[in-house]
């Protein structure tokens, strides 16, 4: 049997095999450096997806952000962003991007969970509170740590509440005080290793 090119084709084939093996390993290496490492799943919401608590709350939008528009008294200054946690996943992080002028009051972020069963009255639990003292473009992180919330969409629901100061405070003028995005970090609660992404987000 004549195999004239065998001496030449063997090394490239070996090289290709090595590349295949290397490429097979590459996703693991890449995942360790990516936000999706350790099975974190990210769920984004734009600022304008927020629901104002009252029709007396004044707002405006720009590039999908939700800006508090109060320059004087009025409004509840509360806006809600629902956070879905599907069955089989757990909520571990909420990262909020926003902007705050130096004259704007410090916003308070609160993360709630409400569960309803067969009773007419349901429970509401405050999971975390975070006051943003930074001014300018800010990122606020609510890290639930080991107190992650297991998704129970048939019973419970979660939301982020942002309080833009009190009703007597000015929000600081046009498009100076708002929320640009809300990101929820969800993960498989059965995974053993999950700290890298949290650390990455916890470090500014």
């Amino acid at each position: 049997m004549n195999l004239p090119l065998q001496p030449l084709t063997l090394p490239p084939l070996l090289l290709a095999a090595c590349l295949l093996a290397g490429a097979a390993l590459a996703p693991g290496v890449l995942q360790a450096d990516s936000p999706d490492a350790h099975n974190w799943h990210l769920s984004h919401d734009i600022g304008m997806a927020g629901h104002r608590a009252s029709s007396t709350d004044l707002y405006n939008s720009d590039t999908s952000a939700y800006y508090c528009r109060h320059t004087g008294e009025g409004g509840t200054r509360r806006t809600f962003w629902p956070i879905d946690v599907p069955e089989g996943l757990a909520l571990g992080l909420v990262s909020v991007l926003g902007t705050r002028h130096t004259s704007s009051p410090a916003p308070t972020l609160r993360l709630y969970r409400s569960c309803a069963g067969t009773a007419p009255v349901w429970t509401v639990n405050l999971l975390a509170t975070h006051v943003v003292n930074d001014t300018g473009e800010f990122r606020a992180l609510i890290d639930l740590g080991q107190n992650m919330v297991i998704g129970q969409p048939g019973t419970c629901t979660q939301w982020l509440s942002v309080q833009f100061g009190t009703s007597s405070q000015s929000c600081g003028g046009h498009r100076r005080f708002g929320i640009k995005s809300v990101l929820a970090g969800l993960r498989d609660p059965d995974q053993l290793f999950f700290s890298n992404f949290r650390d990455a987000y916890a470090t500014p």
């Binding site: 009252s54 629902p82 969409p153 048939g154 629901t157």
Partner: peptide, 26 residues
């Protein structure tokens, strides 16, 4: 099985000039 839930604050008034407000807890 599963469920989809909508809280009261997630509803939008049908009429643009509806005055709405929260009572408590959604």
């Amino acid at each position: 099985s599963g469920a989809v839930e909508v809280m009261g604050f997630q509803f939008r008034p049908v009429l643009h000039n509806t005055e709405f407000a929260p009572f408590s807890d959604g």
